[in-house]
Write a protein that binds this DNA or RNA. Structure first.
Lengths: 132, 132
DNA sequence: TATGCACCTTGTAGCAACTACAAGGTCAAG
DNA sequence: CTTGACCTTGTAGTTGCTACAAGGTGCATA
């Protein structure tokens, strides 16, 4: 399997796959006689894992941890649980930040009844006069 | 007013202020005899505006637009409205993405009853494609 | 056989929005 | 006179890719 095929199969750009290899997130592929990367089913599984974790918002560092954990079948799940819980908490924090933002942006839009910038409540609420 | 004071007054790092100046987001400050930046009330107002907009999630490019708009008192508010609405839409999109993520992470946590990685549903589910 | 085209290789640089040094200058207090 | 907090410039690092550039390979077609 060449890099383009793997890319298509996983919805990842070839450049990203090479990047993962450079970063040690994915193991290096075998090479053909002409030096093309040659991937196996294991690589496909590994890349799928990585992409899935990234989609779920895990950082590269967390993905590394998850990968390391996934290679030790006998270890307890606790560490995986902890990572997922951490990520969940992070996501919840972001959601509540964004909901506050949504509130505020909505309030700004409703507040401005003017039609000239000079009286615009939005511009006003951003901080009043500037020198530029 | 020196850069450190302005930094404290606005909750911005001095380095960030210098960065804004380099980027043309803030006008250059006057200089003292010893070449220190010397800020006025106008600079304070401008920086407050910028920080507020950034906190609301506007990109640097959008902040530039907002600043430009804010300097033309006679222009209609429409363009400002459009930017705020754009930003609101963006925030809403992010919220719904994150809520989907929260769902999925929650599902992962609930799904895993195992205590060994070997049977861990979380690790398992990372290796599978999902239809979010 | 030649040629075109899609694919592959490496290496380097760019994106956003800062942040973190390093190496040195300035200034007030003790 | 020294200490320490502050300031200056310039450069490089952060995250997770993405976009070239310059060249090699593989295969179908003229």
């Amino acid at each position: 399997m060449r890099i383009g095929e793997l890319a298509k199969a996983t919805g990842t750009k070839a450049e990203t796959i090479r990047y993962y290899e450079r970063e040690g997130i994915l193991p290096a592929a075998d090479r053909t006689d002409s030096n093309y990367r040659d991937y196996s089913g294991n690589h496909l599984a590994a890349l799928t894992f990585v992409r899935r974790a990234r989609q779920l918002g895990f950082s590269m560092a967390q993905v590394r941890e998850l990968l390391a954990l996934s290679h030790h079948d006998d270890n307890p799940c606790e560490d995986v649980d902890r990572l997922v819980q951490q990520q969940l908490a992070e996501v919840e924090r972001k959601i509540s930040d964004l909901m506050a933002l949504r509130e505020e942006l909505g309030r700004m839009l409703r507040s401005c009844q003017a039609d000239k910038i000079g009286e615009c409540q939005i511009i006003g609420s951003l901080g009043r006069q500037s020198v530029m």
